[in-house]
Every structure is written in structure tokens, then in C-alpha cells.
């Protein structure tokens, strides 16, 4: 899962980004509206955390312009807690709204819900054959037993599971698993896929040679 956080207060930006990375997300950051909009247009993020009061271009404008080309879920984050501000934000195209100060756990939960809904799932539980993935708890069980996965492995599995039955290209996977600061080698992806296969069975993820990966529903 790859997220974009747009926030002009550097301490807060750092905190949110760190917290989200610790949750296993790949996180990109932007410090003003223009940069945020540019990045959000360039890359298919799983969700965008967007502050309202931003230099150069405010959050409402960013979301309005982003909606011209993308459907990326947007969570507005703002100190302006008035009803009118919320309405403006939601009408501009934001998907959710979180007033400052906020609880990090609530932010995580809302992001999970946004990502889940944008993939078309209403439930936190994804069951594929004998594997049960709990998106909220970030746990994976197989035949009732807990499967230990690293954060990256889990993200890889979740991304494929949310798009089960569909082909996911290597580029897409790569884009969603690593943030802009990571200069990891492309074969790292193969390592993660191979690790997941070891833990859940080789046939769980099928490879379409030259195209990408897929989990059959």
C-alpha cells in the first residue's frame, strides 16, 4: 500500500509519515498543495492524506483538481473543524474527513476503510481458499493457524488479495510497495513474492510470465 501525505507543518508531516510507515505502508510526502497535486497525479496512490491549509494551493483546490483525472481516495486532515469546511471538503471530492488533533489509530482505521472501499470490499475479512486475511488487524491465517508475515510481505499479499482475480503488473506492485525514497532493486519484489509463496503455498500466487502476478479468487 502506498500513500501520499500532504502537510505543511514539518513535525506533523514527519510524525504521520513515520507512523504510517511503521504500519507497513509505503509513504510519500509533500509540503505544499502544488507538490502534493503533482505527486498524486503522477502516481496511483492507494490513498492520499491531505491537509486543508497548505501553501501555494489549498487542500480543497488540490482535491478538486485531482478529481479531474484520478479517483484516488482522499482523506482530508484539517484544523478547521466547522461543518461548512467539512462540507466544502467532501463536496470538492474528498472521501473522508478527520479533524485535528486526531488519534493516529483513528487515522489508520479510516485509511484502511478508504482503501478497502476503493477496492470494492465492505468487509475487513478477505477469504481466499483456506487463507483468511484480516485487513484491520493485519493478520493472515491459514487453516486456522496464524501465518507470520513481514510488513512488506503482508502489504504485497493484501494488495494482491484486494485485487484478487485480476492481473497485477510488476510495476504496479512495485509502485505500491515502495515509496519514492527507496532505491531498492527490482528483484526485491521477487524475493517478497517467493517468501509469501513459501508461507502460503506455491500455487497461492500465480505468475503470468512477462505480465505480473495474480491471486485466483
Amino acid at each position: 500500500m502506498r500513500l501520499l501525505v500532504v502537510e505543511d507543518e514539518p513535525d506533523l508531516l514527519h510524525t504521520i509519515a513515520t507512523a504510517l510507515r511503521e504500519e507497513g505502508y509505503a509513504v510519500d510526502t509533500a509540503e505544499d498543495g502544488e507538490e502534493g497535486l503533482f505527486k498524486a497525479r503522477e502516481c496511483d496512490y492507494d490513498a492520499v492524506v491531505l491537509d486543508v491549509m497548505l501553501p501555494v494551493m489549498n487542500g480543497f483546490e488540490v482535491v478538486k483538481k485531482l478529481r479531474e483525472s484520478k479517483k484516488t481516495p482522499v482523506l482530508m486532515l484539517t484544523a478547521r473543524g466547522r461543518i461548512n469546511d467539512r462540507i466544502t471538503g467532501l463536496d470538492a471530492g474528498a472521501d473522508d474527513y478527520l479533524p485535528k488533533p486526531f488519534d493516529l489509530n483513528e487515522l489508520f482505521a479510516r485509511l484502511r476503510a478508504l482503501i478497502r472501499r476503493s477496492a470494492g470490499d465492505a468487509s475487513n475479512i478477505i477469504q481466499i481458499k483456506d487463507v483468511v486475511i484480516d485487513v484491520a488487524a493485519r493478520t493472515v491465517k491459514q487453516k486456522g493457524g496464524l501465518v507470520e508475515l513481514t510488513a512488506r510481505e503482508y502489504s504485497l499479499l493484501e494488495h494482491l488479495a484486494l485485487r484478487r482475480g485480476k492481473l497485477v503488473t510488476r510495476t504496479e506492485l512495485y509502485d505500491h510497495l515502495f515509496d519514492e525514497n527507496e532505491t531498492s532493486l527490482s528483484n526485491l519484489l521477487d524475493v517478497h513474492v517467493s517468501n509469501v509463496r513459501k508461507k502460503l503455498g506455491h500455487e497461492f500466487i500465480t505468475t503470468r510470465r512477462g505480465h505480473g502476478y495474480c491471486i485466483e479468487a
Binding site: E9, D11, L12, T15, I16, A19, A79, G81, P99, K100, P101, F102, D103, L104
Partner: peptide, 10 residues
Amino acid sequence: RTPISVLLSQ
């Protein structure tokens, strides 16, 4: 709110 947000989240 903004500094409080920083404090709380930090």
C-alpha cells in the same frame, strides 16, 4: 490545534 496535533501524534 496544529501544535497540539503534533504533540499528540508525536
